[in-house]
Simulated scan of single mutants.
Amino acid sequence: MLRSHRTNGLLGVLTAGAVAVALAGCSPQADDPPVDPPTADACEPQRLETVVPGTLTVGTDQPAYPPWFVDDAPENGSGFEGAVAYAVANQLGYEPDKVAWVRVPFATAIAPGPKEFDVDINQFSITEERRAAVDFSSPYYDVTQAVIALEGTPAAAATTLAELREVKLGAQVGTTSYRAITEVIAPTAEPAVFNNNDDAKAALRNGTIDALVLDLPTAFYVTAAEIDDATIVGQLAQPSGQPEQFGLVLDKGSSLTACVSAAVDELRGNGTLDSLQAEWLADVAGAPVLS
């Protein structure tokens, strides 16, 4: 459900003490650069330098997949990321009718250069390599990667990383799913890359690849609702021991970054992110960690 009532929480999170608490609670990566907290009035919609004055323009890819979005319609506010986007907008003071959506391919959103959006939400993992080209908000979700395969295949029977090294693996290009293949599994054969997850799923169905790496919530959705004979083989450990986290993407050096991060921090601190996760990602349960 879209929420049009703005809370007063952002004003509170902008005080020095509250900012320290909020930042401590959001598990930022250890090498996150310090960001000076914005003043309260700097985050009012009339003061924010958005692409369209008075409107928050949010980008995401097309198609937009469950459980992150529902019916490929981000404007309905359903799905975890759809709901998070409207919660952030609400925290900043934007009514639902002042939120506009644009479709931006995943790779384009994180490439250097001017953006047609104010923020983009599309399961972007925060990495130092990407930080060279774009800004990230504070993280709104901690995630792990998972491997799926068709039931009855050698890949589905794998219980160790060593067994997965011998199968043909695939992932969407430019994602941390691909990085997890190369850094955690380290297969003997070059992994296949795909422009989007639809192409990757088709390759799994037709046998072009033996197993597909996706973030864990997407893996649960694909195996439960999209590919009947697919199963989750297991999840992958974090390469560095630091949790992989999703953040909203902004233009490099955006004047909005501090305000958007303050909004995300408040949503984490007041329990909104946990509530949205419980609502939209409730089916994501434990899966064995492969080693």
Rank of each mutant, 00 (worst) to 15 (best):
L161H: 03
T218F: 06
G207I: 04
R130F: 12
Y94D: 14
T218D: 05
D41W: 14
A30C: 06
N122L: 07
Y178F: 13
P63N: 12
Y86G: 13
F124N: 08
A22W: 01
G207D: 04
D229W: 05
A73W: 07
G234K: 09
Q29F: 13
P74H: 04
A211D: 07
L248Y: 05
A219E: 01
E44D: 11
Y94H: 15
V193L: 07
E95S: 15
F80D: 15
Y178R: 08
D97K: 11
D228Y: 07
R6A: 10
P67M: 08
V167P: 03
H5R: 15
A85L: 10
L14W: 03
D41F: 13
T55L: 04
R6T: 11
P139M: 06
T57Q: 03
T108M: 11
V264P: 03
T144A: 05
P139D: 05
Y178H: 15
P63V: 08
N206D: 14
V289D: 06
A16C: 08
V13G: 09
K115T: 03
K98F: 04
G9F: 11
S261H: 00
V264Y: 08
A180Q: 12
S125H: 08
Q29V: 14
T272C: 00
G113E: 08
A132Y: 02
G17R: 13
C259D: 04
N122G: 14
R103G: 09
G113F: 13
G113R: 03
Q245G: 14
C259F: 12
L273I: 08
P187V: 04
N90Q: 15
Q245N: 15
T182M: 03
G286D: 15
P34H: 08
V102W: 00
N270P: 11
R131K: 06
D228S: 12
E190I: 08
G77W: 02
L11N: 03
V119P: 05
E166P: 03
Q277P: 02
V84M: 06
A224Y: 11
S254N: 00
R268I: 14
T15E: 13
P96V: 00
A100R: 15
T159Q: 02
L236Q: 11
E151P: 00
G271I: 08
